[in-house]
Each structure stands twice: as structure tokens, then as C-alpha cells.
């Protein structure tokens, strides 16, 4: 563990961005998430870890209502973003998702140019008034995603032509371009090689300055490297949630310990 970061962490603990209370998720007959309570802090990286099928991705998708697109999925309980229930009837998921962005497991750039990929969000949400502003937004998003220097000469090349790591950073730039408050990342590095992984991890650490980041990961090392807080899910339950250092060095629950030491997983 990096001691310097541990100290930094204490300083950064700020206000709560997302509050979840008694969240239940059903997929048809199966009960995928049971009674999850969690507080996600602003300007912090929160990692969800746990064995396959433990519900961590499902829970992540609840946070921007991506589960709405699956017909048989049912969500109960309360999830509050800045104190407002995102499952309230009055809430338009379109508006919600503009504030809670998401990056997926496999890079999924649209079959458009690099520029258009990044400009997509600002355009549909009407965040810019003219082309000059849009150019500015695109550039700043690409810079935030640490991709600008690699693509600035070929903004009109198709996004699908980039390498895997570049594609994933392009997807991050695309998500960042709408300046969301929360950025959800669903195993963003699982389809990438080690070098690209390192670049993306470094990027996540930088993104923390502006956003609240929630990352689902399979790799405990990655959770330890990038996150300040870690939640351990097991069989649909949130088993333990706390400071990353504490989870990895001094887990309270025996199941967490078993997972971390490699006995279950």
C-alpha cells in the first residue's frame, strides 16, 4: 500500500454524492441484489469488488438506470443523487444519465469519427452554442482522457480504427464530455492489455479531481491501486464497505478475508 495516498485519502473525504438504501434488484425470479445500503462520496474513487455474479455490475447499472433497458429487471428501495430519488416517477432517465456517465467493459466507440464520438453527448444535450464551443469541449474531454496528443491530428478518423486502449480512453472522453457528476466504470480494463490498463488506471486517478468515480473491477490489485474506498459484494449482498486500505489490510468480515486471500472467488 502506498502510504502517501492513504494520508491523502483522509483529507479528501467530502460530501456524499449518491446514497442507496435497502436496494433490491430482481431479474425475473432471481433476486440479484439484496438490501444494499451504501454512500458514495464525491471526488472519490469507489471500487466494487467481488466474485463473478455477485451483483456488483448489476448494482452499478442501477446507479444510472441502465437496467431500465432490460424488461425483466425490477429495482426497489431508494437511490438518491444529491438527495433526489433517481427512481422517482418524475425523473427522466435521459436527464439522469447526462449527470451520471458510464464506461463499459468492452470499448464501444460509435462507428463515427473520433471527433463525433466525443461531440455526441454535448450535441444531444444541447450543451454548446456553436462549433467553436464544441471544438473546445471535445479538446478538453480528449485531454482529460489523456488521448488528445495521440489523436489531435486525426480527429476525423473513425473511432473504431484506434487501438483497444485508445478506444477505451475515447469512450472515457465521450463520457466526460457531458461533464457528468458521477462516472461509472464497469470493468473498464478487462479487455485491455497491461500497458493500456496502466494508462487507464492513471487516468482514473486524475479524473478523481473532477468527478465521483465508481469502478467495478475483477482485479483486487486494481482496486487497491486506484480506489479510496472499496465495497465487497458477495451473492447479492454488500458484505463490507470501507476505506480501501482497511478492507485490504484488515477486513472485518471473514468472507472478505477469504476473498482477498484467494479462498473464494
Amino acid at each position: 500500500m502506498n502510504n502517501m495516498r492513504l494520508t491523502e485519502r483522509a483529507v479528501q473525504a467530502t460530501d456524499t454524492k449518491i446514497t442507496a438504501r435497502k436496494v433490491q434488484v430482481h431479474y425475473g425470479a432471481s433476486h440479484a441484489i439484496k438490501d444494499v445500503d451504501i454512500d458514495i462520496l464525491d471526488k472519490t474513487v469507489t471500487a466494487f469488488i467481488g466474485p463473478s455474479g455477485c451483483g456488483k455490475s448489476t448494482f452499478l447499472r442501477c446507479l444510472n438506470r441502465m437496467n431500465d433497458t432490460i424488461a425483466i429487471c425490477r429495482v426497489e428501495g431508494a437511490i438518491l443523487l444529491d438527495g433526489e430519488d433517481i427512481y422517482d416517477k418524475k425523473v427522466d432517465p435521459v436527464q439522469l444519465r447526462a449527470r451520471v456517465g458510464m464506461v463499459f467493459q468492452k470499448p464501444n466507440p460509435f462507428p463515427k469519427s473520433i471527433y463525433d464520438n466525443v461531440a455526441y453527448g454535448p450535441k444531444i444535450h444541447g450543451l454548446v452554442r456553436n462549433k467553436a464551443e464544441l471544438d473546445e469541449v471535445v479538446e478538453s474531454a480528449l485531454r482529460k482522457a489523456a488521448l488528445w496528443n495521440e489523436v489531435k491530428d486525426r480527429l476525423n478518423a473513425p473511432g473504431t480504427g484506434l487501438s483497444g486502449g485508445q478506444q477505451q480512453r475515447l469512450c472515457i472522453a465521450r463520457a466526460v464530455a457531458t461533464s457528468p457528476e458521477v462516472l461509472l466504470m464497469d470493468e473498464p480494463c478487462s479487455a485491455l492489455d497491461p500497458i493500456a490498463t496502466a494508462q487507464v488506471e492513471e487516468l482514473i486517478d486524475e479524473l478523481r479531481a473532477n468527478f465521483s468515480v465508481v469502478i467495478v473491477t475483477h482485479s483486487m490489485q486494481q482496486a487497491a491501486r486506484v480506489s479510496q474506498r472499496t465495497a465487497f459484494f458477495h451473492l447479492g449482498n454488500l458484505v463490507e464497505f470501507g476505506e480501501t486500505g482497511q478492507i485490504f489490510t484488515n477486513p472485518r468480515d471473514p468472507r472478505t478475508e477469504s476473498y482477498i486471500t484467494g479462498r473464494i472467488g
Binding site: 444510472n64 441502465m66 433497458t69 432517465p93 435521459v94 436527464q95 439522469l96 444519465r97 447526462a98 456517465g101 458510464m102 464506461v103 463499459f104 468492452k106 464501444n108 466507440p109 460509435f110 462507428p111 463515427k112 455526441y120 453527448g121 444531444i124 444535450h125 469512450c171 465521450r174 463520457a175 457531458t178 461509472l184
Partner: peptide, 27 residues
């Protein structure tokens, strides 16, 4: 057209018709 493109677009806060017109049809 792969579902991942739809997910990508929905996650950006696009409505379904925007997804169809700007992502699916071009693809």
C-alpha cells in the same frame, strides 16, 4: 448492430430515437 453501441448511447443520456437516428442507423 451490437447491443454495446445502444448501451453506450443510452449511457450518454440519449433518448431512444436519438440512439436510433445517430448511432444505429449510421452503423
Amino acid at each position: 448492430v451490437p447491443q454495446s453501441l445502444r448501451d453506450g448511447s443510452f449511457a450518454m443520456g440519449a433518448t431512444q430515437s436519438e440512439t436510433v437516428k445517430q448511432v444505429i442507423l449510421p452503423a
